[in-house]
Simulated assay, not measured.
Amino acid sequence: MFTTAAHYASHIYLMARTDPDAPKHRGISIFVFSMDTPGITVRPLWTIQNDPPAPAGTTYGDNRTNEVFFEDVRVPASCLLGEENMGWYVGAMGLNLDRVGASRYLISVRRDEDIVNFVKGNELGGLDLAEDSSVRDRIAELWIEAQVCRLMTMRSMSLVEQGGNFTYEGSAEKVFAPEHGVKTTETISQILGPYAQLLNGSEDAIEEGVFAHNLMGAFQSGINHGSTQVMRDQIARRGLGMPRG
C-alpha cells in the first residue's frame, strides 16, 4: 500500500520471508527487481490534497500513490540485496536515514516562513496581524520550534557523516518535526479563521490556498516513513533502553 512512484518506477524493493522458522525480524530478505517482472500489478490510489491542484511545495507527495500486487512473482537469487535473511536490517537502516535530511526539514518548517511573510505584508479583515501581540507570540513560538527541527536535522546528518552510532535520532526527529508541522498548520488556521479553509481556485483564497493545502497535507507526515507512535517506541527502546511492553 502507498507505493509512491510505482506507476513510473523501473524497479521496486520487496521484503519477503525466506526463513519461516526464524524469529519475526530475522528470516526476512530484501530484493530489488524490475517492475516489468511478470505477475506485478499496479493500481492507483488518489489523494485529496492536490484536488484542486496545490501550490508547489505545500504538500507531501503527488496526487497519486499506488497499491502493488504480486501474484506468483518469481525473481532470480541475483536480485537479493545484502545478505539472505538480513533484509529487515537493510530496510530499517534505509528507512532510518530516510527520516532525516534537508528536504524533510523543509517540509516541516516551510509553513513557518509562509505565515511570517504573509503576516508581515498583509491585513486581514482590517486587522493588522503583525501588530497583534497574541499572533506575534504564537508565531514566535512556532519559529523557535522550527529551529529545534533544524538542530535535530543537523545532529542526525552530522552523526551519519562522521560514522557515529545512528540509532534513535532519526526516530526522534520523525516525531518532533511532523508534529511541529501539524501544530503550525492548526495555529495558522486559528490565526486566519475561515480564510484558512479556502483552497486554490476559491475567489478569496489567500496566496492560492497555500495554507489550506498545507492543512490537508500536514497530518499524513505523522504516518509517512513510520508513524510517530512507532517512532516513540523506538526512542524508548533504542534511545532510553526501556524494555518491551
Score class of each variant (00 low, 15 high):
S108D: 07
Y168L: 07
F2N: 15
A212Y: 10
C79N: 13
G163V: 12
N117D: 15
Q197N: 08
Q220M: 05
V148N: 00
T65N: 08
F70S: 02
L97M: 02
A22T: 14
A130V: 11
G217Q: 01
I223R: 00
D62W: 12
Y105Q: 04
G87Y: 04
L81D: 09
V109S: 04
E169V: 05
D137L: 01
L80V: 08
L240R: 10
Q147M: 10
S103W: 09
C149H: 01
M242Q: 10
E123W: 09
D36F: 08
G91I: 03
V175F: 05
M93R: 07
G94R: 00
D204I: 00
R138I: 07
I28E: 01
E208N: 06
A5R: 14
G181W: 06
F176W: 14
N50S: 15
H225D: 15
D128R: 15
W143A: 11
R111E: 14
V175R: 04
C149W: 00
R99N: 15
F166Q: 00
F118G: 11
R155K: 07
S134I: 10
G222Y: 02
S133R: 09
L81P: 12
Y168S: 13
Y195S: 07
T3N: 11
G39Y: 06
D36Y: 12
D36I: 01
R155D: 07
E84R: 05
F211E: 03
M242V: 04
A172H: 03
D72A: 09
R155L: 06
I144C: 01
S156D: 08
R111C: 15
E84L: 00
P55E: 00
F118C: 01
L14T: 10
A205R: 10
V175P: 12
Y168I: 04
P194D: 13
E203V: 08
I144W: 03
T47H: 13
P194R: 03
D62V: 05
R150Y: 09
P55K: 03
Q147W: 11
L198A: 06
K183P: 14
G193Q: 00
N85C: 01
K174Q: 12
D21T: 15
L159N: 06
V230T: 12
D233L: 15
H7I: 00
V100R: 05
R17C: 01
V210Q: 02
G163N: 06
R155P: 03
E131N: 13
E173Y: 13
Y89F: 14
R238D: 12
M154L: 04
D36Q: 09
